[in-house]
Amino acid sequence: MNRILFHMDIFFTMSLFRSVLEYQQQIMGMVKLVPMAAMKARGFGNINDIFSGLGFYAANNIVYMMLLGSIYSMVLTSNILLKEEYGKTAEFLMSRPVSRDEIFASKMAVAFLNIALLNLLAGFISFLSIEIFKSGDFRIQPFMILTLYTFLLNLFFGALGLLVAGLIRRARPVTFFCVGLVLVLYFLFTISRLSGVNGDFGYVSPFKWVNVEVLNPSYGAEFWRIFLFLGLTVLLVFLSGFLYRKKDILT
């Protein structure tokens, strides 16, 4: 149910774009009064991004799919493993003829499939809403690349959630920790985008590995970003699997 509302919200947010275009002059006047830092925090890299369908989408994508999608992914993957421990059902599961590796792999597969479906549906709803509410031409290629980066970012946070589940020694939910960690990394990314700041430190945050400048004419797929995400995700998955295999589950 929450997921349906989430996807509906993406659609309705995009539907605001028509109103933004209609009241362009008034909005421009208001936006100029807003500090640029606040605009960047909301996802807009440039004032004019608001008046482009793709720019409007990219800004909303930062908040909805990059930030909230990452929180969702990390909370999902960490809890899908830890719930068996703090719910004390691990004793039941571990007495079945199933190996730790099989438990880890099947739970990870379900979680990653869930993240993939979330992204697929969000991508589809976003595409549909841009098509409905756009004013001029809409370049599909930057949209697809940003959607791919966003999915890889969510997967990375999903893998990070698995690592947290493998590392934590006490059976308890880690929702607050996951939300806090994603917010801190998002905050770093936002600060690094402010003008007048050397933004290189932002690369500490995985959000920075996503190129969000979709209105840049040279915007295209950069393989180092894709390999960085995929490489680290695979590494985290293997490390988490190793830790989960060695973990004393019932303490």
């Binding site: 719910g87 004390k88 059902t89 004793e91 039941f92 007495s95 079945r96 003829p97 199933v98 190996s99």
Partner: peptide, 20 residues
């Protein structure tokens, strides 16, 4: 052989924690 052993094992824990 823990998987094969568990296939032939039935276990009742002292606290019955089930999926709610």
């Amino acid at each position: 052989d823990s998987k094969q052993i568990r296939r032939r094992l039935g276990y009742v824990p002292s606290d019955a924690n089930l999926y709610d």
